[in-house]
Design a protein around this nucleic acid. Structure first.
Length: 562
RNA sequence: GCCCUUGUAGCUUAACGGAUAAAGCGUCGGCCUCCGGAGCCGAAGAUUAAGGGUUCAAUUCCCUUCAAGGGCACCA
């Protein structure tokens, strides 16, 4: 609808004013300003030297569309009011699952990669990862619903000093390790790795032990047989633990990539880039000189001959762009401190392979810090994902009479919603009571509204409801009108959320929808309605469908009772 | 030092350059003989960090200052 108005306006502007202008058409900010609004009268006034009022008159006289009931002029804005039947048509489409999405493609192949989650093995999966995975999964679903074929990838660090520290400590506690390996649950194993990491960190302070840890680090890189079995075993513990979390938060990956598989190919690519003079030697290392591109200089192969994180990234990019056929965009979700890292590696990748140019995108989301300060595994003040979900679940179980499965779903809904309603660019100072809401603008509020709708629908047979929808606004109450107009905007909101990588637009939309429905519910009867009964049932069904679909786009499962 | 991001009610946040800056929590006052009270209604609460500029219009764009966070060669 928005596009239709826009195109017609632009045509009129060209014909009547002999002027090219992109007409900005938006949903009106509130009900008294119609359904769509445009500011072209302001913009045009100066260009064509006419008063906004005159411009409005000319547009009104030329504009014709069967779906538009009225066009008016308020405060300099031109507002469009849609015919009632347009809304009814849309609601019926939603009811019959016939919504056609507005497509948003990033290229001709309609295939994109989203790389997210990115935890490191041998470390805990904490609320920062939870924010990442929640954001990534939601973006994936939004892009899918806009017509894209999405490949979900996850780049996990399974080599590095933190692992050497952990393995060093384990080597000094081998009997305990064997005992845990044979007899303990996965949770105990993860606890054990955490303890060993802390121990390894303390050991690293000691100069002698530090040398040994660095040696172990090299052994891991070289897949030395003396360390390989221990590395593989503990790595598997971590991966099993991650997999359980992915399932718990309803995410899956098409491909897991590991840092350990990138070293060899990364090194080859670095030497190829050196040969092509994209990289150069400097102080014993191989580096990219970023100055010609206003970038930093960074090391790709260190002076010991090992590829750095940058060097390995070249191999990752190659895989991500070749493992799934032609890719139009590849999104990497990380916290902002990796900005310059990505600017530089993207540049080198482009120089190596110009087909990638412009297709790599770094999407940042901000840190989750604790109110008490920064999280640090050394200080042991990590908010671990399972712990957080369990805490919220307990809180729900102690406050409401529901079963455990539902409590689990509600807990995850409240956590995901709490993250997603905040723009990714806002850092979060996390406090469990303040950050995770169960009332007000929250996941449970939306679930509750959904359950409420379903509860009404279950009590009646919608098929037998009156099907006469030839309505007039004058016969409807304000709550019905507001709801219908809001429901109408759903697809456009999804499009905007995709365009701006902003699931928080979906949360805001759903919250407004639920609020409007609850007010309607409070003031008017549906089942025993004396007027508009069929329409009210239709509105209730549509609200339920859209909340469910919207929650799905946020990665949240609707519950049927609570 | 250079570069990037952020600064909005007591707290946590929202707002393609647009109309009266929008919510939640907290505080205060109302609403269940009625489809689910995790709900609904109302009140109080904002010089959008400060100061300039551009614009018909600035929380949004530009400049300066202040504050917080992050990045700037062999960590990931």
């Amino acid at each position: 609808m928005k596009e239709t108005i826009k195109k017609k306006l632009e045509k009129i502007i060209t014909e009547k004013f002999n002027f090219q202008l992109e007409a900005n058409v938006l949903p009106s900010p509130n009900e008294s300003f119609g359904d769509y609004t445009t500011n072209i009268a302001f913009l045009l006034a100066k260009k064509v030297k006419k008063k906004p009022q005159e411009i409005f008159q000319i547009i009104v006289n030329s504009f014709s569309d069967k779906q538009i009931k009225k066009i008016d002029f308020v405060n300099g804005f031109i507002n469009f009011w849609l015919e009632e039947k347009v809304f009814v048509k849309k609601l019926i489409k939603v009811k019959n699952n016939q919504l056609t999405p507005i497509f948003l493609f990033f290229g001709s192949n309609k295939k994109i990669v989203i790389e997210y989650a990115q935890p490191n093995t041998h470390k805990l999966f904490h609320i920062g990862h939870l924010r990442n995975i929640t954001y990534g999964e939601s973006l994936a679903r939004i892009f899918e619903s806009l017509g894209n074929n999405v490949v979900r990838t996850n780049y996990q660090g399974d080599v590095g000093l933190h692992i050497a520290k952990t393995l060093y400590a384990i080597l000094n506690n081998l009997s305990l390790f064997e005992k845990i390996k044979n007899n303990s649950s996965l949770n105990k194993k993860i606890d054990f790795i955490g303890q060993m990491y802390s121990q390894g960190n303390r050991d690293y302070e000691d100069e002698e032990k530090k040398k040994e840890i660095i040696k172990i680090n090299q052994m891991i890189y070289e897949k030395d047989n003396k360390i390989l079995p221990l590395w593989e075993e503990t790595r598997k513990w971590s991966l099993d633990y991650f997999e359980k979390i992915y399932q718990r938060v309803d995410t899956h990956f098409d491909r897991l990539y590991f840092e350990s598989e990138m070293a060899k190919r990364g090194l080859e690519l670095c030497y190829q880039a050196l040969k092509n003079k994209i990289l150069k030697k400097s102080q014993g290392a191989i580096v990219f000189d970023g100055r010609p591109y206003q970038l930093h200089t960074r090391v790709f192969v260190n002076s010991l001959g090992y590829p750095t994180y940058e060097g390995k990234e070249l191999a990752l990019a190659e895989k991500e762009f070749s493992n799934f056929g032609e890719i139009d965009r590849c999104f990497h979700l990380t916290t902002p401190e990796q900005k310059s890292f990505f600017e530089i590696t993207f540049k080198v990748e482009e120089l190596l392979n110009n087909k990638i140019a412009g297709k790599q995108v770094h999407l940042t989301y901000e840190w989750v810090n604790l109110k008490t300060g920064k999280m640090s595994s050394r200080e042991g003040n990590i908010v671990e994902a399972n712990w957080l979900i369990d805490q919220i679940k307990e809180k729900i179980l102690s406050s409401y009479k529901i079963d455990k499965v539902t409590a689990e779903n509600i807990a995850i809904a409240s956590i995901k919603y709490s993250f997603l309603k905040i723009s990714p660019h806002s850092p979060i100072d996390f406090d469990i009571d303040e950050s995770i809401n169960l009332e007000g603008n929250s996941g449970p509020y939306l679930l509750y509204t959904y359950v409420r709708c379903q509860s009404i629908i279950k009590k009646i047979n919608p098929e037998k409801a009156p099907q006469d929808f030839s309505i007039k606004w004058s016969k409807l109450n304000q709550e019905e009108i507001n709801l219908m107009r809001h429901l109408f905007l759903f697809e456009e909101i999804i499009y905007q959320a995709g365009e701006k990588f902003a699931p928080n637009l979906v949360t805001e939309y759903l919250y407004q929808l639920a609020k409007k429905f609850n007010l309607f519910y409070q003031k008017h009867q549906v089942i025993k309605a004396e007027s508009n009964r069929g329409l009210r049932i239709l509105i209730t069904e549509t609200t339920a469908k859209i909340i469910k679909k919207g929650l799905f786009l946020l990665g949240i499962k609707a519950v049927e009772k609570m």
